[in-house]
Design a protein around this nucleic acid. Structure first.
Lengths: 92, 92
DNA sequence: TACTTTTGGACATTAAATGTCAAGTCAAAT
DNA sequence: ATTTGACTTGACATTTAATGTCCAAAAGTA
């Protein structure tokens, strides 16, 4: 997104208030951004916040079970659990 | 599982090599065990290791996105990513 | 009551992630 | 060839979060 807008690391980093070295690493997936940083990035580029957050959190989830044999099954079970939680969120 | 076998915290904790206060908390979901502890627990009770690991990791995944609006969508996207990773694991 | 088991909470320890800085690489420009 | 600007790399510092420990309080039981 930054390159598409012909912006410099320095420029984006300044506005988003991230060290430019860190931003560089985030761009190349060497570091994970924080949730707040993701929000600021979304805002800065006029992107939908939720869209980026989904991308962000899904990356974190994948990272959590990277190189685990049971990764996929765990993910499927987790999804069911989330569904269950959402279902019972209201009525106590 | 411990109570079904009429065992005391002390007894299980000793074999598994966990502080019994910690084990108590793990039982009541106040603390997360480590992966190794899960393995030892499975072994101790003669349970299938993968089964417990799946339960363990799915809990961790859920925990990661607890009280996030986008939790479910993130989980679904994560699952797709895992599928993609598994698919391309061999070739290249 | 006396004894045992379990739990609660404060604190210590460890581990992992984020943040920072300075030096390094590379390409373009002159 | 040297300088300049953009980006990257790596070591290190800082922060954050989770795990582990200890001991006292609570709850249960004879």
């Amino acid at each position: 997104m930054r390159e598409q807008n012909s912006l410099l690391l320095r420029q984006v980093a300044a506005v988003i208030e991230i060290d430019q070295a860190l931003l560089s690493k985030i761009e190349r997936n060497e570091r994970m951004p924080t949730k707040d940083q993701v929000k600021r990035i979304a805002k800065f580029f006029g992107k939908d916040e939720n869209e980026l957050l989904i991308s962000f959190f899904s990356d974190k989830l994948v990272y959590e079970v990277r190189d685990e044999e049971v990764a996929l099954k765990a993910m499927q079970v987790a999804e069911k659990k989330i569904n269950y939680i959402i279902k019972n969120k209201n009525g106590k």
